[in-house]
Design a protein around this nucleic acid. Structure first.
Length: 422
DNA sequence: TCTGGGGTCCTAGGACCC
DNA sequence: TCTGGGGTCCTAGGACCC
């Protein structure tokens, strides 16, 4: 039987999360910022209507914010992560087969749904998620994921659709495709959109009916898959279990530029700690560690350098990884440079249980593992960062530490942040 | 003054081997 | 002047996503 997909997409997700616990924000222009309160990464419809674009730096919209009393928030990942789980949990009731695609999106398999028509199904789903979690969602339904994304986008925009659009067997499919600008097609980014426009292909309908060879030469196999998906031939099945991670990265822009090697070391040690914790959570070990540093990329004298360290044995031991990172950092540190960002990458990931032993290995791995388990347990029960390596430095004087000056409370994950009803 | 972070996939080209 | 051919593996870079 031909598949049918539903895409469920939370509307302006971060903003919607803030509104659940602060209903006064409903109807007002609201934005949520990236790390260090740098850019607008989520916008309410009212904020979009004011012309605030995705990813625009805060300092460029100061005027608009002031004039229109836009409500501004720092990112609150604890809150958004928890709200996301609630939404996904609710969705499991609507299909046995679901793929969590991102923090605010999921694909559902509807091929064996019986009884109700798809539109009514979508409407039920939308109502229940909103009632149970407070998060408004849009639902797009179609024969392929790409078409479901497109339907979802139209569902959100069209007043008539009111949040749910079924294009799985619609006689208006062509008209719907024609109304979607080429750059808004899932998988067509800025570069490809520019190329396609230069060939006279301006919307999804023209793209669907384009010549295969033209698309293949410039966009390769990915482009051809995209064409097929738009033609109703499914190329991307639902991914029921998340594929194993191939890399883990932790990187941050510093609050202020830093120059001293000691501070740089602290930041890198902190990122390594966080990366190692992620490894352990996924029961993985890493065989290659990359450390990189850079200056402000918007300045002329931009400097970037990185070092790749092949580890003797795959590991997720924080102390060991910090040691290698420090060694590596010494090789790429340059004096007199104003660093603005650093990061680490963990590659060559493998299952913790399958680590290839090294004959010359000098680390007592059984002992190290016990220590890491103790550290993780403490941080899990007492709160993240309750215990950490000295290399990370002390909270005061951390000029690199990311700032969130406008953050709301962790309403759902910390007892002392619970909402009080007076 | 102020500009996010974490991922994946594909392709081309070079190194290396037989 | 002429200078094999095919396969595999790895890496860097480009493109995309949220």
């Amino acid at each position: 039987m031909a598949p049918v997909f539903a895409l469920v997409d939370c509307n302006n997700f971060y903003v919607s999360c803030e509104r659940v616990f602060n209903p006064q924000l409903v109807g007002k222009p609201v934005i949520v910022l990236s790390n260090n309160d740098g850019c607008a990464v989520a916008r309410s419809n009212e904020a979009k209507a004011l012309g605030i674009k995705m990813g625009v730096p805060l300092y460029q919209i100061k005027e608009i914010i002031k004039k229109n009393n836009v409500q501004v928030y720092s990112s609150n990942y604890a809150l958004y992560g928890d709200m996301s789980q609630r939404v996904m949990q609710t969705l499991t009731q609507f299909s046995s087969e679901m793929e969590i695609y991102s923090i605010d999106e999921a694909f559902l398999d509807l091929s064996d749904s019986k009884g109700l028509g798809f539109t009514e199904y979508g409407r039920n789903l939308k109502n229940r998620v909103e009632k149970w979690t407070g998060i408004p969602v849009s639902v797009g339904i179609a024969k392929t994921k790409t078409l479901a994304k497109l339907a979802g986008r139209l569902a959100k925009k069209s007043k008539k659709a009111n949040g749910v659009l079924d294009l799985s067997s619609s006689k208006y499919l062509d008209r719907a495709l024609e109304s979607v600008e080429i750059g808004d097609v899932w998988g067509v980014g800025r570069r490809y959109a520019g190329f396609l426009r230069s060939k006279g292909i301006k919307n999804a309908l023209q793209f669907r009916d384009a010549d295969d060879n033209l698309i293949r030469t410039k966009m390769g196999i990915v482009g051809l898959r995209l064409l097929n998906e738009l033609r109703g031939i499914s190329c991307y099945p639902l991914e029921l279990s998340p594929p194993r991670k191939k890399s883990i990265t932790v990187s941050r822009t510093f609050k202020k530029e830093i120059e001293s090697p000691a501070e740089l070391l602290e930041a890198v040690a902190a990122y390594v700690s966080s990366g190692a914790e992620k490894l352990r959570r996924e029961k993985l070990g890493s065989g290659v560690l990359i450390v990189y540093v850079m200056t402000n990329r918007f300045k002329d004298d931009y400097y970037y350098n990185s070092v790749t360290i092949k580890l003797p044995v795959q590991t997720n031991n924080t102390a060991e990884l910090i040691g290698y990172a420090q060694e590596g950092l010494k090789k790429i540190y340059k004096k007199g440079v104003q660093y603005k960002k650093a990061g680490i990458l963990l590659n060559d990931l493998g299952s913790e249980a399958m680590v290839q032993a090294n004959f010359f290995d000098t680390v007592d791995r059984a002992r190290a593992k016990k220590l890491m388990q103790a550290v993780d347990t403490i941080n899990f029960t007492m709160g993240s960062g309750a215990i950490q390596y000295g290399a990370v430095g002390l909270a005061r004087n951390q000029n690199w530490k990311t700032a969130f000056n406008l953050r709301s409370k962790a309403y759902t994950t910390q007892w002392d942040h619970l909402v009080e009803v007076l």
